[in-house]
Design a protein around this nucleic acid. Sequence first.
DNA 1: TCGTTCGTTCAGTACGGACTGAACGAACTG
DNA 2: CAGTTCGTTCAGTCCGTACTGAACGAACGA
Lengths: 158, 158
Amino acid sequence: MSPDEADFVDRMGLWLEMAGGTRTMGRIYGRLMVCDPPHQSLAQLAEALGVSKASVSTVARQLQEVGMIERRPSSERRHEYRITAGGFTRVLQLQAARMQPGIAAAEFGLSAVGADRSVQREHLEELRDFLEFCIRDFGADFVSRWESFRDGRRGNGG
Amino acid sequence: MSPDEADFVDRMGLWLEMAGGTRTMGRIYGRLMVCDPPHQSLAQLAEALGVSKASVSTVARQLQEVGMIERRPSSERRHEYRITAGGFTRVLQLQAARMQPGIAAAEFGLSAVGADRSVQREHLEELRDFLEFCIRDFGADFVSRWESFRDGRRGNGG
DNA sequence: TCGTTCGTTCAGTACGGACTGAACGAACTG
DNA sequence: CAGTTCGTTCAGTCCGTACTGAACGAACGA
């Protein structure tokens, strides 16, 4: 791995760490973005990144569970990890799903504050409505908007 | 504070904790959503939530910095904390701003991988384009979509 | 001026989680 | 069958951070 590639990998690690993930998660994803060939085994990732196989095993499964990377068997025991195309949209949708408990909390609050407290009820209703809107807006609408944006940019020549 | 209100406050705490924040942050915000009157002093919040003034001081400032609550002076020294109407949209926009370093990382990666590696360049370009799209889509477009959704629901008597 | 109350700050603690090393089971090679 | 490699799992460590208690500065009432 060239120094610039290693630098990129570390930047991805710092970025994902700042964005709420872990550094190793970002470094694994960054490595898979730039490695040649674009698929790697778990041991290769651990070797290239200088982290333990245990970390890669754990974190790679997390990345796979959220749909950021995919793992396909090369031999019976060995696996190849690679980037999932368009995995970002899935992450956004998973984030949207996290908002459901907030809706439940807001509705519970509405059952708790009493009909006479209009200001408090408005706060609760606005939270509930906003989260419902987010779930809807981050669903199919978002993906189609993203695809049209991407295709338009590609049509213009990157 | 009624038991149901306290229950709501704790649910908000658990929810924000799950969503990446802290429990106290969610509990303070939940308390401000349902308290009567809808504005409270720092000492009142600490008393009602059973946490130290130090925590409330720190966390309330964080909530204020991201625009979720506002603090206005009641006397010279004393302050009133209250919910900021529509504070959620600001949080989303702050999240969007966090994507900028990812764009920078992707562009750095593009300068590192060489023009012959098309697969890797596509990964990097897709990340860059996706993040740029998110920043754009979470901007004014998102707010206007949310406002029309909210007004439509209010018009229907939700 | 003095005492009280309110909010901030700082050192310390306690808890969670990211990461590691080692042990283990499961497949290829001879 | 024995030896090697690969991936998973688990106990343990280490570090960041959420939270507390106490000390402090700044404003009100007397």
